[in-house]
């Protein structure tokens, strides 16, 4: 299977989890990665710099109507929902919060599922609410691949557990396991 994009949803405890994942993913990892991390609406996204320091991949904030490209890692800007159009460009929206969150994981994942159908990988990591569960459900319905961090290894287990309770996910793995799998299945 040729996967065209990876979406990652992460909430509380996310900083450490992402530091681990992105210190392990290699420089030549080309599948684009798109991330919603729940953050304060007033955040200046300094944390991106923090992760960038240890990462082989380059992070950037997703821009309005920006084209999604190989080899890039995109982050949803604070206080906007990030959505993906069918032609694989980003749109931003200031619609109401979803699951008390803006950006919301469900909003990204549902639009990504519509855009990429079965060529999408959805990943849910540590977090303490249920944002992302509906999105993973839709990715699953479209035949995309669903991966959840093993709740017993998560700083905050509620979010991954919520997905596992609602969706027949493909993999439940530790952070290291997730990285190994992503490398294996996206290798050209």
């Amino acid at each position: 299977m040729n996967y065209e994009a990876i979406v990652i949803g992460v909430s509380s405890g996310g900083l450490n989890a992402m530091k681990i994942i992105f210190s392990l993913l290699p420089k030549d990892f080309i599948t684009p990665i798109i991330i919603v991390q729940h953050i304060s609406p007033h955040s200046d996204n300094q944390w991106i710099k923090h992760i960038n320091d240890d990462s082989n991949l380059k992070f950037k904030e997703a821009d309005e109507k920006e084209k999604i490209e190989h080899g890039k890692v995109y982050i949803a800007p604070p206080n906007y929902h990030l959505i993906i159009e069918k032609n694989k460009i980003f749109s931003l929206s200031i619609d109401e919060r979803v699951n008390f969150a803006r950006p919301s994981i469900d909003v990204l994942f549902e639009s990504a599922a519509e855009a990429y159908k079965n060529k999408l990988i959805g990943v849910i990591l540590t977090g303490s609410n249920n944002d992302g569960t509906k999105g993973m459900k839709l990715i699953n319905e479209y035949g995309g691949l669903t991966i959840v961090q093993d709740p017993t290894t998560a700083e905050s287990k509620y979010m991954p557990a919520s997905v596992i309770a609602a969706v027949q996910v493909n993999y439940i793995l530790s952070l290291n396991g997730i990285v190994d799998l992503l490398i294996k299945i996206t290798q050209p």
Binding site: I83, E85, D95, E110
Partner: peptide, 8 residues
């Protein structure tokens, strides 16, 4: 309009 927005 943005199609993904309308769809949602």
């Amino acid at each position: 309009y943005s199609e993904a927005h309308i769809m949602r």
